[in-house]
């Protein structure tokens, strides 16, 4: 009892120390705060990336290298989940929980109406990512949520996760190759491969890359909740 009180006391002291460090850092923030990058993006962003949305411009052009590795982390995490949840004897888990569970009819009707709308909205978010808030990562998550609705309609539905995962791997390789194309046209990797200064031509790259990343994220999240739903049965 006494030792737990001492432990909590030390913990709270440590957290207070962290809070103090943060407080004094904030006091001197005026000296450290630098708006150079912000002004640079504001002045040159549209010219360099041809993207109206600066956030999309940054993760598809200035910092494409980061985005590729973040897509790679996604792939590794999904592979880990599939590998951990694997059962060697066939893929039959014990299927009796399904008998107790039946989706209400009203919910099924409503889901059937909502499903195509969500799919179209997700695709709109992906394709329009360079003009309005959105992009591959967000749109992919919305598309994955739309696919999740299918599983609510039909709880018996099952998809092969290894098939989804192999498509995702292929899409990832296509992303990497597509990002490295610019070494032939511009001499540097991981930037927009089109040399034309026309904004319409450069937009092709942004839309294609957004669609590829969107497909990859949607497939990854789909594989994740398929593995979880299979575990939940």
């Amino acid at each position: 009892m006494v030792s737990s009180v001492i432990k909590h006391g030390f913990l709270i002291l440590l957290l207070l120390f962290l809070f103090g460090v943060f407080y004094f850092t904030m006091e001197e923030l005026d000296i450290m705060y630098d708006t150079f990058a912000k002004r640079y993006y504001l002045l040159n962003g549209l010219e360099d990336t041809a993207s109206m949305n600066l956030v999309t411009g940054i993760y598809l052009d200035y910092r494409l290298f980061d985005s590729i590795f973040e897509a790679g982390i996604l792939l590794i995490a999904v592979s880990g989940i599939i590998w951990i949840s694997k059962h060697d004897i066939e893929e039959h888990n014990v299927h009796f929980m399904l008998d107790k569970f039946k989706t209400p009819d009203l919910f099924v009707m409503f889901a059937r109406v909502v499903y195509p709308l969500m799919l179209v909205f997700g695709f709109y978010i992906i394709v329009n990512g360079h003009l309005s808030p959105g992009g591959g990562f967000q749109g992919g998550a919305i598309v994955a949520t739309a696919i999740l609705i299918l599983y609510y309609i039909d709880p018996n539905k099952d998809t092969s996760t290894s098939f989804i995962l192999s498509i995702e791997k292929i899409v990832f390789i296509i992303i990497v190759v597509f990002a490295m194309l610019s070494i032939f046209t511009k001499g540097t990797m991981f930037t927009n491969p089109f040399t034309s200064s026309d904004a319409g031509v450069q937009t092709i790259y942004l839309v294609l890359m957004n669609v590829l990343i969107g497909v990859k994220v949607a497939l990854g999240l789909w594989a994740i909740f398929t593995a979880f739903l299979r575990e939940g049965r």
Binding site: N53, V55, T56, I125, P133, G134, G135, F137, Q138, A141, I142, T145, L148
Partner: peptide
């Protein structure tokens, strides 16, 4: 942008 991602992930 971040809000859209958070809502899409965190809601379902």
């Amino acid at each position: 942008d971040v809000a859209i991602a958070e809502v899409a992930i965190g809601s379902a």
